[in-house]
């Protein structure tokens, strides 16, 4: 039977002015954690849990990154080393792995699940194209550098890496390199553009979606998104049927 877990806070690191990396001792979690899956985390006195994708999981250490935004994440940004955090998971469907040549495309806080995806894609040729607003918002550059074969960083304002949107960087990257799959996570407008670029190049694309969630396990039907499968429009639950989905089903024509 599935259950929730209490995990000890090992460290809470500040990555930027608003982004934090939480390291939890998750050696009590015996389940297999797939890249793209998430944990539903109790945050302070907030009534609902908050969903965070897995940034990394290795040797019993679970890493979750989050942006301090509302009441819940503000509370989570105040946890102290040695305290325990109540996590439910791993939940949802992760990325399909096992392709020969892969490229991950991330924007802002969307980059985090892609790090774990790269780390779990052993044997693949791995490229990463990551976009941030500006130099101050660039996160985990060393980790990504170590986890892939070829890293491109783009900043919208040109303050670091290549200048411009991540989608422009991706277009250029695809002119020179061929891939069997593209995985993307970031703002929905960015992911849609990534899908359109992949479509032009005939590369299958998986997206990791975000939606306000209730239960996180598929019961409350709060986090649905419309997808088109075999020409039929239907509601899929981001938490249970996703958060990873095939881009052509989400961004149907």
């Amino acid at each position: 039977m599935k259950t929730n877990y209490l995990c000890r806070v090992e460290e809470l690191k500040r990555l930027t002015d608003t982004i934090w990396l939480l390291e939890l001792d998750a050696s009590n979690i015996r389940e297999d954690i797939k890249p793209g899956q998430f944990f539903h985390v109790k945050c302070g006195e907030g009534y609902l849990r908050r969903p965070f994708s897995v940034c990394d999981f290795k040797d019993g250490m679970l890493r979750i990154a989050f942006e301090e935004k509302g009441r819940g994440t503000k509370a989570l940004a105040r946890v102290k080393q040695g305290e325990y955090v109540d996590v439910l998971g791993p939940l949802g469907n992760g990325f399909d792995i096992g392709y020969d040549r892969i490229c991950v495309v991330g924007g802002g806080i969307g980059v985090f699940p892609l790090l774990y995806l790269l780390n779990k894609s052993e044997g693949s040729r791995k490229d990463a194209v990551l976009g941030f607003l500006c130099k101050d918002k660039v996160v985990l550059e060393n980790e990504f550098e170590n986890s892939c074969d070829n890293l491109v960083i783009a900043c919208d304002d040109g303050s670091y890496g290549v200048r411009g949107f991540v989608t422009t960087a991706l277009e250029k990257h695809l002119e020179k390199h061929d891939f069997d799959i593209v995985y993307t996570c970031g703002p929905s407008i960015m992911m849609k553009k990534v899908y359109e670029i992949c479509k032009k190049h005939n590369i299958p694309c998986q997206v990791s979606l975000e939606e306000r969630m209730g239960c996180g396990i598929g019961a409350c039907l709060v986090c649905v998104c419309e997808v088109k499968k075999e020409n039929v429009l239907q509601n899929k639950r981001v938490c249970k049927d996703g958060p990873v989905m095939w881009a052509n089903e989400v961004y149907y024509d």
């Binding site: 907030g46 009534y47 609902l48 939606e211 306000r212 039907l221 709060v222 986090c223 649905v224 998104c225």
Partner: peptide, 23 residues
């Protein structure tokens, strides 16, 4: 029934507001 558009949920002090719309 497909139900209502999202967002369908909002946290409130000690509770939630929901509008799933009988999906």
């Amino acid at each position: 029934r497909m139900g209502n558009k999202t967002p369908r949920i909002c946290e409130t002090p000690s509770g939630i507001l929901n509008s799933v719309g009988l999906q």
